[in-house]
Amino acid sequence: MRPSAINRLKVLVPIKRCVDYSVKIRVVNNAVDTNNPFDEIAVEEAVRLREKMGTKIETITALTIGPTKSQETLRTALAMGADKGVHVEIPESSSPEPLGIAKTIEALIKRDKPDIVIMGKQAIDGDQGMTGQMLAGLLEWPQGTQASKVVIREGEKDVDVTREIDGGSETVRLRLPAIITTDLRLNEPRYASLPNIMKAKKKPIEKVTPESLGVDLTPILETVGVAEPPKRVGGGKVESVDELVAKLKEAGVV
């Protein structure tokens, strides 16, 4: 664990540009892109930590790994309250795996030495939900996944994370530096106001390449194909409760 001379925390928030969650998926190119909703929650949480802890939060850095268009994602995070952005630019055609993404974030963490990393629990396109845990594994840092509550303790050495688990919740105390992934219930992300959007345009975004960080994003797994799931066809309507009960009995489900 890295001792910090002054207890001022650096927060890193990795985010991803995804297709909008309300869009019915057909062709990704034509769809509306937006921030991964879980990542907006991560940005919001970082900004709320600053609102609560003031100068004890040194910086909030938003990070994204993606094609040129991903800069918009960073601007949104900056408009919400992040101080600066880091954009690891990759070609539009590449689709790195969570392990590659985790290694890229790891490289930046080793360079910038944040104390706390807050990120979404999953991206809503790949639905893998692995990057945070992989990152924690690579760094051997403690992890608080699916967080619904985050409290940094007095002295800024530990963080208490309440996690959503099957059947309820559990609270763990993690020694910083640590990785936190956000559940939907953690907070309600704010809308960026117009003045803040304007201000965000002046905030710095640093561009780096995977090569400069010494990471290779070549996938280990081979994607064989993507297909439509089997279509489910609705079976029509019933007119009364009696008809409903009769049909349920007929189907043998009650």
């Binding site: 795996e97 969570p98 392990l99 985790a102 639905d127 893998q128 939900g129 692995m130 990057t131 945070g132 845990q133 992989m134 990152l135 924690a136 594994g137 690579l138 051997e140 992890q143 996944t145 699916q146 959503e164 688990i165 099957d166 996938p219 280990i220 797994l221």
Partner: peptide, 23 residues
């Protein structure tokens, strides 16, 4: 693909330097 395994196996995979396939 439980909450526990979701937290655990990616951490293991990263330490073994292998990908994982969830769900």
């Amino acid at each position: 693909h439980s909450t526990l395994a979701k937290s655990l196996l990616p951490r293991v995979a990263a330490q073994l330097n292998v990908s994982a396939v969830p769900d």
